[in-house]
Nucleic acid binder design. Structure first.
Length: 152
DNA sequence: GCCAACGTTGGC
DNA sequence: GCCAACGTTGGC
């Protein structure tokens, strides 16, 4: 089973928002690399929920894939900020899975900490070139280290 | 608010 | 196909 990391701005949609839902489509992603990761996510796989653009950016908890990727409906909606005129229902460009809340960690594992911890420094969010990627994969070892930090 | 980094667009 | 210009992300 693969592991993932999904970024979101807590003011827009944070882990507390997800917690209040049964499941939620992870829509609005408009980057091909991130999209390809979304399309690779399998039912039941878990990911870290990462809070970005906030006071303390970092990993705050865990989510799980509740439904595998399907065409993101917002690309067809002219009133959506995610509307894409080049996408049609016959040839969709953007896909989203649905995710569900699993748990909130007792503390935030901060980006600052991730950058300083041996074994985590190759994570996308910790590198210059991939730091902006909103959906990335996480190795088993990275998953283990971050989970350990969250409970330390 | 600043700026580094990357993606996309469009002229040629 | 190249590349300049612009837009967006997101840490700091």
């Amino acid at each position: 089973m693969a592991r993932w990391l999904l970024k979101s701005e807590p003011e827009t949609f944070g882990i507390e928002h997800l917690k209040a839902k049964v499941s939620e489509p992870w829509d609005g992603v408009r980057n091909y690399t991130a999209r390809n990761n979304l399309m690779a996510m399998k039912l039941g796989e878990e990911g870290f929920f990462y809070h970005s653009s906030c006071e303390v950016p970092g990993v705050v908890g865990v989510l799980r894939v509740a439904r595998e990727a399907f065409p993101d409906p917002t690309q067809f909606d002219p009133n959506s900020k995610y509307f894409d005129a080049k996408a049609t229902p016959e040839t969709p460009r953007w896909f989203c899975p649905e995710v569900e809340y699993v748990k909130t960690f007792p503390r935030v594992v901060t980006l600052r900490e991730i950058k300083q911890t041996p074994g985590l420094q190759d994570m996308a969010i910790a590198t210059k070139s991939w730091s902006r990627l909103s959906v990335s994969s996480v190795s088993d070892k990275e998953w283990e280290i971050i989970t350990e930090l969250a409970y330390s």
